[in-house]
Simulated assay, not measured.
Amino acid sequence: MKRQKRDKLGRAHSNGYQAGLGGKAKEQCPYQNLEAKSEWLGGWREAITDRNMGLYK
């Protein structure tokens, strides 16, 4: 059971990261669940930071 939960949250983080790299706004988060939304936003913030540091264009 725990593995499935971790996989979903990991996927949410990855999806948020991809969204951030793609230039999407954080308001476009597709998740309603608080944990998943938090992970998505964490990934999104990480991607925005990486883009601002010049790691991705």
Rank of each mutant, 00 (worst) to 15 (best):
40 W>C: 04
14 S>V: 08
13 H>R: 06
8 K>H: 13
7 D>T: 08
44 W>F: 02
3 R>M: 10
8 K>A: 03
3 R>H: 03
27 E>S: 05
17 Y>C: 07
44 W>D: 07
6 R>S: 03
28 Q>Y: 03
51 R>N: 12
52 N>W: 07
15 N>L: 10
21 L>I: 06
36 A>E: 04
21 L>W: 07
15 N>P: 01
37 K>C: 01
45 R>D: 04
5 K>I: 11
11 R>C: 01
13 H>G: 06
57 K>Q: 12
36 A>V: 00
48 I>K: 14
50 D>K: 03
38 S>R: 12
45 R>N: 08
39 E>H: 05
20 G>M: 06
10 G>N: 08
26 K>I: 15
14 S>D: 10
29 C>M: 05
22 G>Q: 08
33 N>Q: 10
25 A>S: 14
38 S>T: 11
22 G>N: 14
34 L>D: 09
38 S>A: 10
37 K>H: 02
19 A>S: 06
24 K>L: 10
45 R>V: 03
25 A>F: 10
37 K>V: 03
30 P>N: 04
21 L>H: 13
57 K>L: 14
27 E>P: 07
32 Q>S: 15
16 G>H: 04
23 G>W: 02
17 Y>N: 01
46 E>I: 00
44 W>H: 15
53 M>H: 13
28 Q>M: 05
48 I>Y: 01
52 N>S: 11
